[in-house]
Amino acid sequence: MRLHLISTGSINPIDEIKTFQSLQPYTDQLHLREPNLSAAELLDLIDALLAQGYTSDQLTVHDRVDVAHVAGIGVQLTRHSLRVRDVRRHFPNLVIGKSVHSLAEALAAEAEGADRLLYGHIYRTASKPNVPPRGIDALKQVVTFTTKPVIAIGGITPDRISEIAATGATGIAVLSGILSQADPLAAVHHYQEVRV
């Protein structure tokens, strides 16, 4: 299972760079979802990560196509982002992930040229208290009917990894389970211990 880490949205680049460095060997993809940072601050953060051992294909910035292009990393498009189709047209080589919440959205994103789908939320999560979770069967359906890698997100704890893996999903994305923990490195080890 691939492990995607999603940043908390309140990164303090100076304090947390060491945390990210320690997580690098265990992270398949680090998503920078930091709407409060400016383009220049995001680029500073990305360059600091690249200088600390992250490779460019290990990093994804949310929403900011411009920053992704200039930094040479991937972009994650969400509901409020530019459309996959338009981004693909202008940036044929950009790695594009798309956040989807239904099979219909997943199929549309794939048709428009997304490279990877982030589907959720699968379980009940504090990030989306008022939206009912999609559940494991819906995930299975998305995995079955799309050809792109599907990353499952939303309330995934280590004990649920085997259930996710059984659907054929490529990986899991974790936010609060790791980066919101007091000891993110210990938390990532709990996820690593589950061998699938």
Binding site: D47, L50, A51, S56, V70, A71, G72, N93
Partner: peptide
């Protein structure tokens, strides 16, 4: 060619 502008910038 894709990597060069990124390398130069870094």
């Amino acid at each position: 060619r894709r990597l060069y502008p990124l390398l130069a910038r870094r």
